[in-house]
């Protein structure tokens, strides 16, 4: 019984998000700021940016710098740490 309720909640939330993701059209005459027309950001980009700011994901994204040495160092250190931790337990 509880699994039905849990999945019902998930489906309802999914449908709400689906509805919110339909892009809205821009207004006809954009307002002026500082002498040039102000562009509206699409609602999706605003949503994703606020979400990532809340969750602090930029710090996690800094882990994958693109430099191979950092990748190898992280893999090797985590390998040794996990090996020691999993053997002790």
């Amino acid at each position: 019984m509880i699994q039905l309720i849990a999945y019902l909640i998930i489906i309802v939330l999914t449908i709400i998000f689906l509805i919110k993701m339909i892009p809205r059209k821009l207004k006809k005459s954009p307002p002026y700021t500082c002498g040039e027309p102000m562009k509206f950001e699409k609602p999706e980009t605003v949503f994703y940016r606020t979400l990532s700011n809340i969750l602090g994901l930029k710090k996690l994204q800094k882990l994958s710098t693109g430099n191979l040495n950092d990748y190898l160092l992280m893999i090797f250190i985590c390998f040794m740490l996990l090996l020691i931790v999993l053997v002790m337990v």
Binding site: Q61, T65, G66, N67, L68, N69
Partner: peptide, 10 residues
């Protein structure tokens, strides 16, 4: 140099 061959990042 490996530091210059890192265009794919993030």
């Amino acid at each position: 140099d490996i530091k210059k061959i890192s265009n794919l990042k993030g």
